[in-house]
Design a protein around this nucleic acid. Structure first.
Lengths: 177, 177
DNA sequence: CCCTTTGAGTTGAATGTTCAAGTGAATGCT
DNA sequence: AGCATTCACTTGAACATTCAACTCAAAGGG
């Protein structure tokens, strides 16, 4: 007992660390909001729906099973189901029963593909305007490395999925998110 | 016309930039979710409500006007109003009509203050576990600087509010996050 | 065979956020 | 004094996300 570590004593952050932390927290709050706002404004969708479209567009046949897609866009099946319903009601994707069991394939329609091609440049431009061009290449890559480290702790599954996707493409393709 | 810049041609990101970007996007998606999850689980509140409590606790008299608080926690007045209603129904804060006009003061109750003191260490611990201890001091500060740059473009008002808060405290205090 | 389990999705209610509209006090104009 | 505006906030509906419950098909076990 006596030499047990006081696990509930948490060392506070010093002044500079706190300052950095607050900026980070502000960023993770504001950046997604800004990206969502651009997509909403210009395309009427949110980031999650955009990632669904991108995921499908990169996939052979522009088709993926719900569960694969949920993995790729890292959302729950439920969230995916709701989102696909929204996109389907716009005619951008369609559901089709697939081979076995209860499995469903989602396919990006021609309309959906055409819309994505219109949408993507604006989103990349926004990514450049808000982040890439502000930081410059070196700082961006450094930021990426830090993000990767943190992500491995925060959400190992997410991090792994990202590495895999990275291995798979290696070449060009669509703007991954 | 002939020498007009093609404003709609967007240079794509190269392979490494894209990789960094995807990690950043993943981070800004996953980190807020993780912080929210910890607060929800251990305290039944979200980050925004936590920031309200922290803001009030740092303020003289543990009291702030709605609009000041909205500025400090960077949310809309509407969001603030809803959130304060939730916190008030738990008895953690109370509304009181203030001097002029329609202005309302929000005060952190003793119960609320006591709860915050219970909650804060766990949240700081989580911040350390997920970010601070993972990166180490140097990388954290670098990340903070990058976050600051980006934030200035993404949300100048937010960035400014943060600098001001930073000037004001200079000393110790509660975990501003 | 029947029964249980697992896998893959869907559905609906609860929660939080936003957006548009409303409320009421103070202030400015004339 | 009378009226319009602005400020500071509240309210309620719409929307997205989560969570728990449900559906249905296929496998496995005995």
């Amino acid at each position: 007992m006596a030499d047990e570590v006081h696990a509930d004593e948490v060392p506070w952050l010093d002044h500079e660390e706190l300052h950095a932390w607050m900026h980070l927290v502000a960023l993770v709050e504001a950046l997604p909001a800004a990206l969502d706002a651009q997509l909403k404004r210009d395309a009427g969708i949110n980031r999650f729906e955009y990632m669904i479209l991108v995921g499908l567009s990169e996939s052979p046949d522009r088709t993926m099973a719900m569960s694969q897609l949920a993995l790729a866009a890292t959302g729950s099946l439920s969230r995916m189901s709701h989102a696909v319903s929204r996109l389907a009601s716009k005619g951008w994707v369609e559901r089709r029963a697939a081979g076995t069991g209860r499995q469903m394939d989602v396919r990006l329609t021609d309309t959906g593909f055409a819309r994505l091609e219109e949408i993507a440049p604006g989103h990349v431009r926004e990514a450049r305007r808000l982040v890439v061009d502000v930081l410059g290449r070196d700082d961006l890559l450094a930021l990426g490395r830090s993000a990767r480290s943190v992500l491995q702790t925060v959400s190992p599954g997410f991090a792994e999925a990202l590495e895999e996707a990275h291995q798979r493409v290696a070449g060009g393709g669509h703007p991954g998110a």
